[in-house]
Amino acid sequence: MSLLRVEGVSRSFGSVVAVKEVTMTVQPGELRAVIGPNGAGKTTFFNMISGFFPPTKGRIFFADHEITAMPSHRRVALGIARTFQITEIFPELTVRENLRIAVEVASKHRLSLWLSRENETRIEARVAALIELGGLSAKADRQVSELTHGAQRATEIMMALALEPRLLLLDEPTAGMGDDETYHIVRLVRRLHKDQKLAIVLVEHDMRVIFNLADRITVLAEGSALAEGTPDEIAKSEAVQAAYLGKVR
């Protein structure tokens, strides 16, 4: 049974059709890359899956629930977590505080006025584990606005992971990063995919990253799904080369 099923979704902004009748199915544990030139509609596509706004046409299902018009916080509860193309974190808080809020909400404490000793210990341990996994131990108590771009991205990814999602949506996680930072993120994503069997949909421009990680690739161009297949199939596809690979990098 598929985890995510997107059926013929479209989204227009006024007269601009950003996404046009895209259909896509993601299996549990799959790592899917979504690629396409600037303005192809990749972020818009993510926004519809995560509930930033509903599609103007089509339907979306997640693990047997129809989520087409479901509010985003309920999608999170079902197991969809995302990061943004431009990092969205709590700038004036430390890495630890950022993660702590995420863990508290994920453990259904968002309306609690205080925590029992037991819960407190459990939450702290979970936060510590996420800091470790994200390679953020040395920076855990620094305010995130002071950190490097790479560390901020890692913090955001760990916040999404704190929600214990079944599907992780990553919008250009390595954009604007140096080689070392990119390598770190790639290793992290591979680990989540291989060790934790997490389903991941990834928007990326960096071809090395994509061919390194993806099980399957979906190519968007001008809002439409141009092709879908394994990295090898996509690399060989003439339509894709004509529309995309030839032009970029």
Binding site: S72, H73, A106
Partner: peptide, 14 residues
């Protein structure tokens, strides 16, 4: 206060 968008996508009904 810090980031409404992030808060929303952590699953907080803003």
């Amino acid at each position: 206060r810090e980031n409404e968008r992030r808060a929303r996508f952590l699953g907080i009904p803003i």
